[in-house]
């Protein structure tokens, strides 16, 4: 790009104005190209999904048959599995990540803050497939030996713990997802809490609040919008996470309430079945799954932003970090 400047530097203001204009139109073009790319992806997904859309209509969303031989497709189990695993992940990850962020910003000794924050964020750099492998060889045996038996003993009567635990399951997939999204939620939450002005903590403490009361009644409410954003960011990642979940969730087209049973997610289905999708309709059905996933993740992010905007009237702490 810099090679475009053999233009002699004009001494007049007019000339400077022209190079300014070129530069600006270039930037404008780039700025429009990126959103344009999204529109193109959406368009391609839509066109490719068109045969399936026409054949199955909206019932694609709530029917459960997935039969490539009979060419009948319904994505309900994957949609269910995507939400169930993501929700389970949030349930585990949010308290964990918030605790880490609160500890690091409010309670930990100063020298500990940077190293721990660094290590937590490092978790985000581990490739998904490594998480999957770890899940298979460490997490699942651990769950089988130490977690599922006591859980079953106490909550075995609920519909959530029915059946035999073979390993690959909603539970395993949800836990691995939780571990994977903790760094994101923790990192953004930490930014949000760091952005809360000291004067807010002081206001609470000066009224006779304990450190914890100050966090609960002043710091967290002040950062609420940003914290919601952090959680939704985590949700967005969980919905689309592919490799590790594919390795652990069991990949069965079935809706089961039990956490111990295998399930499926949209991302896992696409990753697993693309190479097998030989017929046009099979491919188109997978494209439609991709389209749903795409729209869903975009919608989740949009909702996050609207929420933040509504809650804090556009001036949310940490909304920058998003």
């Amino acid at each position: 790009m810099s090679s475009a400047s053999p233009l002699p530097r004009s001494p007049t203001l007019l000339g400077a104005d022209r190079s300014d204009r070129i530069y600006r139109s270039l930037l404008t073009a780039i700025a429009f190209a990126l959103p344009g790319l999204i529109v193109i992806i959406l368009g391609v997904l839509f066109i490719e999904a068109l045969p399936a859309l026409k054949r199955f209509g909206p019932s694609f969303l709530w029917t459960s048959t997935w039969d490539p031989v009979a060419e009948v497709y319904g994505a309900a189990p994957m949609i269910f599995g995507t939400f169930a695993s993501s929700l389970l992940a949030l349930l585990i990850a949010v308290p964990l990540a918030l605790s880490v962020a609160i500890f690091l910003t409010e309670f930990s000794p100063r020298w500990l803050r940077q190293p721990v924050a660094f290590l937590v964020e490092l978790l985000a750099a581990i490739p998904s497939v490594v998480y999957g492998t770890w899940g298979i060889f460490v997490l699942i045996p651990f769950l089988r030996a130490h977690v599922v038996p006591p859980l079953k003993a106490v909550f075995g009567w609920t519909p959530f713990l029915q059946g035999v635990f073979y390993g690959n399951s909603l539970l395993a997939g949800g836990i691995i997802l939780a571990i994977m999204i903790v760094p994101y939620i923790a990192a953004v939450s930490r930014e949000v809490l760091l952005a809360v002005p000291t004067s807010q903590r002081e206001a609470a403490l000066a009224m006779g609040a304990t450190r914890w009361e100050a966090v609960r009644s002043a710091v967290l409410p002040y950062g609420r919008a940003g914290l919601i954003g952090a959680v939704i960011l985590g949700l967005g990642r969980a919905l689309g996470e592919t490799m590790a979940v594919t390795m652990l969730i069991g990949n069965r087209h079935d809706i089961a309430l039990s956490l111990l049973q295998p399930a499926y997610t949209m991302a896992a289905a696409i990753a697993n079945e693309f190479s097998e999708a030989t017929t046009g309709m099979y491919q188109s059905a997978l494209m439609e799954v991709g389209l749903i996933l795409f729209v869903l993740t975009v919608a989740v992010n949009a909702v996050a932003r609207i929420l933040i905007w509504r809650v804090a009237r556009g001036a949310a702490v940490g909304s920058k970090a998003l």
Partner: peptide, 28 residues
């Protein structure tokens, strides 16, 4: 700190409703 109240040099109200700001101490 409850016995010795403080009004800071720079106003630092909470981003809560006016009512909840004033009710903060009595509630706490």
């Amino acid at each position: 700190r409850q016995r010795v109240g403080m009004v800071f040099q720079r106003p630092n109200p909470f981003p809560k409703p006016v009512y909840d700001n004033v009710a903060y101490g009595p509630r706490l």
